[in-house]
Structure formats: C-alpha cells, structure tokens
Simulated assay, not measured.
Amino acid sequence: MAKKCPTCKKGTPLWFISWADMATLLLCLFVILFSMSTVNATKFKKLQGTMKNAFGLNHSEQVNPVGGDSLVSVDFQQEIKLVQLIEKLDLMVNNLVDNGEAELKETESGIFLKLSKKTLFKPKTLEIHPESKLKLSQIATMLQSLRNEIQVTGLPDPSPPPHLAGLLNPWAAGVVEAQAIAEFLIGEGGIDPRRVRVVSPARKPGEVPGARHDPHEFVVEIGVMRTSEARGEGDSSVPADQ
C-alpha cells in the first residue's frame, strides 16, 4: 500500500516570504536608479533625508575615494546648498511671513526674500531695527558658504523717510533703502562686495507705486541668484532703472 503524502501546512511557504522581500527591494533599487538618471536637487535632498532617517544616521560623511576629489560636480553641490538655504530661511522668517511682513519664494533664477519697511527700518529713518540686524547677520553667515551672486533690489517706496521725500522719486528711494541693506551685509555681514549688486526694477509706463494694496510696503528684496559670477574689483556700479 502506497504511503500517504504528508499534509501540507496552510499558508505561504517561509521561503516565498524572503523571496518576495528580495524582489521588492530590487524593484525599489531600480526605481531609485531610474529616478536619479536625471538629477533634481530638491528630490535628491528629500531622498537623502529619507534614507538618513530610515538607517538612523545622525550625520552625513563625504567620501572622496579618488585622490581626495569630490565625485559630485561643483554646480550640483551649490544646488544642494541652495536647497538647504531656502529650508533655513523658511524657518527663520516663518513668523514674518505669517504676519505679512516678509515673502519667500524660489524661482529658476534663484531664491528671493522680500522684507517690509516696518520690519527693516525704524519709523521715518534708514536705521535698521536691532532684531532685523540679527536676522540679516544670520542670513549673511549662511551666504558666506556660497559663491552665488547676491542681488539686493530696491522696490518703489511711495512713502520714503522725510529727509528723502521731495528729493527722490519712489523708485530712487527704494534703491537708497536697498543700498542701506547691502552695506550692512557687506560691512557687518562680511559678504564680498564683488558678489553684491543693488538694482531697481524698471518702471512701467503710467505705474504709480502708491496704487498697490500692500499695507506693509515691501521695499527690499534680497535675491540669491543661481549664477556664481562676481564683478571685478573696480566695478562698483549700481544699476538702476528709474
């Protein structure tokens, strides 16, 4: 009489579970390799943070296996630094943004932080608030590790300080206010003056600055441009379209 086949245990075989885990991990690996074939700095930064949290790493270590040179291009390193910069700025000015006294945005040209007159200057003067000096010093410290051009834009100010009223039009007054911020970043913040440009937006025909409905009057915009070009030692020009 033939022996009976032993009764099979119910459920998935144990070997199949390990095989399924391996297949899933391989699929994830190939998806990650495909997604990184075209490098996007923001996505890469998010992936880096996710992997760091998953493996419990508290710090990152750069490994340069070939002659001490980094395998990551300089441009890509700069892009990573810009991603880190906007994250730090977002935390720093979060309260100001909620109060409508600041505006932070990122475009293809760079990172731009608009600040209101109320936040920057004491009433009817060009003297910077002590709290704003602290924030500007912190921003300058962040910018020292970058080599990108810094563009300080003077937005039209329809109500300049009394000693400027009647002498300058709103566009020129905005440039003077931007110049005060640029001088602080260079003098107190230690930013290389060759990296800093003070500019003014072009006036559109018939445009009236006071017509905008902005109770806080954004007068200065600090832009960290994606270009890393610096002007020569002798170039101290301040481009302004008025």
Results as ranks from 00 to 15, higher is better:
43 K>I: 14
68 G>W: 00
37 S>R: 14
48 Q>F: 10
50 T>G: 10
84 Q>W: 03
104 L>W: 00
51 M>Q: 08
37 S>M: 13
47 L>G: 07
113 L>G: 01
92 M>K: 04
32 I>D: 02
94 N>I: 12
37 S>G: 13
29 L>P: 01
30 F>Q: 06
56 G>C: 12
58 N>L: 14
111 I>T: 12
112 F>P: 03
55 F>W: 08
115 L>S: 06
117 K>N: 15
98 D>W: 04
90 D>T: 13
93 V>N: 02
51 M>S: 11
34 F>S: 10
65 P>H: 04
80 I>K: 01
85 L>C: 12
29 L>S: 09
32 I>A: 15
96 L>W: 08
97 V>I: 14
61 E>M: 13
83 V>H: 02
29 L>E: 04
113 L>P: 01
85 L>A: 10
59 H>S: 11
95 N>K: 13
56 G>E: 10
110 G>M: 00
68 G>E: 00
104 L>S: 02
65 P>E: 05
42 T>N: 05
72 V>C: 01
117 K>D: 13
50 T>S: 09
59 H>I: 13
99 N>A: 12
72 V>Q: 01
52 K>V: 11
44 F>G: 12
81 K>C: 11
89 L>T: 06
46 K>V: 14
38 T>H: 15
61 E>Y: 10
29 L>R: 09
32 I>C: 09
56 G>N: 10
32 I>Y: 02
98 D>M: 14
103 E>S: 15
74 V>Y: 02
69 D>H: 03
54 A>F: 14
68 G>T: 07
113 L>I: 07
83 V>Q: 09
58 N>K: 14
59 H>W: 05
53 N>K: 12
73 S>D: 02
65 P>Y: 02
45 K>G: 13
73 S>R: 02
50 T>K: 08
